[in-house]
Design a protein around this nucleic acid. Structure first.
Lengths: 120, 120
DNA sequence: TCAATTGTTCAATGAATTTTGAACAAGGAT
DNA sequence: ATCCTTGTTCAAAATTCATTGAACAATTGA
C-alpha cells in the first residue's frame, strides 16, 4: 500500500509536462482545483471522468510526476494538488494550468480564494 | 507557401502541454531558447536531436500547437519561439518551460554548432 | 463473521504516437 | 541545365500510451 511520491526538489518540469499533456489528467486537475483546496477529493468523486481502473492509472501518473498527493484514508484515497510544492518549484505555473483546466463558467471558488485557503 | 499557424488567441494550453510533454520537443525548445531570439534557427541546426524526417514531424507538432513559428526561407525553414504570443496568452509559462528545457542533457548538439547557429 | 465499498493488480487489447527509409520537391549555386 | 542542400510526403514499422475486465485486497459497518 505504499504510495511513493517524489520529494519537492525531485519534481521535474519535463515529467510534469508529460503528466499534464493529457486531457483526462487535465480534467482531474480541474476537478481538484474546483474542490476544497485542503480536503481534496477521493478517487470515487472523479469517476465521472473515466472508469475506476483507468482512474487508478491516471492518478498514479500524476502522483509519480509530483503533481498530486495521494493519501490512504481507510479504503479510500484522498487526492490533493501539491500546490505549495509546485508553486515553490515553478512559480505561477500551476495557476496557468488551472486557469485552462477549469473550463466552467460556474466556478464555486476563485483562484484567489484557493490561494488564501492554502496559506492558512 | 506559408505553413498554417494558429492565431495567438487560438493557442490553447492543453495543446501546448501536449506538445511540450515530449523530450525531443522540449530539447528543440531548449535550443531555440539558447539561440538568438530574433533570428531563431533552421531545422538543420536541430538535426543533432533526431533524424531529418522525424524533425519535420516534431517541428510540425510544435507549430500546430502555436509554440513556434516556421517561416520558409529559400530551401530552409526559419524556426523561432512565439515568445510574445505565449507570454501574452500564458504569462510566465514559457520562462518556466525554458528554464528547465535549457539544461536538458538530451541535447548532443555541439558547442560549435550552437555558436554557428547563433551567429548565423 | 459477512457483505458492501473503494480502489488495486494483472494481462490483454485498442489506439495513438513516434520513428524510419525511400522517393520526391523546391531553391540556390556553379 | 545540373548538382547540391534542405526539408517534405508517404506508407510502414516500432513503440508507447490508454483503456478494459476479471480477480483480488483492504477497510468499514452491520
Amino acid at each position: 500500500m505504499s504510495l511513493p511520491h517524489p520529494d519537492a526538489d525531485q519534481i521535474t518540469l519535463p515529467a510534469v509536462l508529460a503528466a499534464l499533456g493529457d486531457d483526462t489528467r487535465l480534467a482531474i486537475i480541474g476537478c481538484l482545483a474546483r474542490s476544497d483546496a485542503i480536503t481534496g477529493l477521493v478517487c470515487g468523486q472523479l469517476c465521472g471522468l473515466t472508469s475506476k481502473t483507468n482512474l487508478t492509472y491516471h492518478v498514479a501518473k500524476l502522483r509519480e510526476a509530483g503533481v498530486i498527493n495521494v493519501r490512504p484514508e481507510g479504503t479510500r484515497r484522498r487526492v490533493t494538488l501539491r500546490r505549495e510544492d509546485l508553486d515553490n518549484r515553478f512559480p505561477g505555473f500551476l495557476d496557468t494550468v488551472i486557469a485552462s483546466a477549469i473550463d466552467l463558467p460556474l466556478v464555486d471558488i476563485t483562484l484567489r480564494q484557493l490561494h488564501e485557503a492554502v496559506q492558512d
